[in-house]
Amino acid sequence: MDVMEFLLEPFEIQRHLTNMYYIGMALICVLAVVLAYKRGFIRVGAFLWLSSGLICLIWEVTLFLIGSRHYSFNPWLELSYHAFTEAGPGLIITFVTADALKIIDMSQLSDASLKKRSRKVLKELSKKMKPQEEDA
């Protein structure tokens, strides 16, 4: 077997599931939203969901278009649902758990902290604007 053959010899990673899985993912989405809301991580939760969903979508579409990914139902529908429900909610639950276990420190990204930082920036901006208005 030459190097190229070794590198490109295909094998398959299969995930067996039932349609129940898709309902389960919807329930996990609800759980993730409730957790994010209760812990005050709505903004970072939304961004985690959005960024992971986009990364997952780009990756999954690439795999699908080069023929590496196969779905048994409606490919585009399944792919979109898969990308937007699998990555985000799991990620939010991971972060909430890691924060609760004090493995990571999410205090800087909590809603309260982000709003405080934004208000400070707004205050500084309005301070800068005032002398300019007086000069004018």
Binding site: L7, E12, I13, R15, L17, I23, L63, R69, S72, E78
Partner: peptide, 18 residues
């Protein structure tokens, strides 16, 4: 419908893993 089997397969190779 709920218990109808579904599958998501991924064809990979060593290059993919790298």
């Amino acid at each position: 419908w709920l218990i109808t089997p579904a599958e998501i397969n991924r064809v990979v190779n060593v290059l993919y893993l790298i």
